[in-house]
Design a protein around this nucleic acid. Structure first.
Lengths: 130, 130
DNA sequence: TGCTTGTTGCGACTAAGTCGCATCTAGAAG
DNA sequence: CTTCTAGATGCGACTTAGTCGCAACAAGCA
């Protein structure tokens, strides 16, 4: 457990939005200026492997970046509005049930899941009906 | 509707596995040698926008490529085995029900979905227990 | 306090994807 | 059948994301 890793984990925990690598790096550098891009990638890699963070694409709304969040207790869906860019989260027992069904019917052991949805959020739907 | 687009679409339809951009390009060039990488990207972009193809990441098993498939009638889950690299598909009424629930409860209009699962397939689980 | 193993920073590199621009072509209009 | 034009293509240069080897460094155990 090095200073850099501690800083990165704290930064992710305190962030209220999903961070991509470059904003995570920028924020982390406010605390620990010398921290390197490669360290961020290597740390994320480890955290993913240990199941401590989840990786998101958010439907590639802004280029090909990846976003990260500390793994929640309960998996949730990310609803990405393709119009305004807002990201909502949604969780449901149905999702848990679906995962159970997958394991039962296919024998596949689930380690990570990623359910992303792209579309239009209710705000955008109301502001411009079409 | 240009020759290039026709070739790209046919290539995707006839492929039995999920293609990334470079293998799609390679296959398409067997029919239409001059076809360019930029054209592939631009065509995929259009096809995504029209809802004719789906984009997959397959949990980034082999680098950061994206994979494409012609959009199926019924959305399905991709189960990517992190050990052997095999990709299974799975569809279920529960998934449809979950999508309906999302729309009802959040007012979010769903245009695309992507549900990917990473783990160990039944074959790998049996061959090496744990 | 010293030692060892794993981590970091650095810089150079690869791979994925984008863009501007000149040329070309599909297919509508005459 | 010929002409015309909007939109598509090919090309090449570029950007951005992510990786890697290596020497220097630090965590934390003895």
């Amino acid at each position: 457990m090095t200073t850099q890793r501690r800083v990165l984990i704290e930064t992710m925990q305190e962030a209220k939005e999903h961070l991509d690598v470059s904003s995570l790096l920028a924020l982390a550098r406010k605390r620990e200026p010398g921290i390197d891009r490669a360290t961020v990638y290597r740390t994320i890699e480890k955290l993913k492997k240990f199941g401590l963070v989840d990786e998101l694409d958010l439907m590639h709304m802004n280029g090909e970046k990846h976003y990260y969040e500390v793994k929640p207790k309960r998996d949730h869906v990310h609803l990405a509005c393709l119009q305004c860019g807002q990201v909502e989260e949604f969780s449901s027992p149905l999702f848990e049930q679906l995962k159970r069904e997958i394991t039962e019917q296919t024998g596949f052991e689930i380690l990570v899941t990623r359910l992303e949805v792209g579309g239009r959020c209710s705000v955008c739907r109301n502001s411009n009906k079409r």
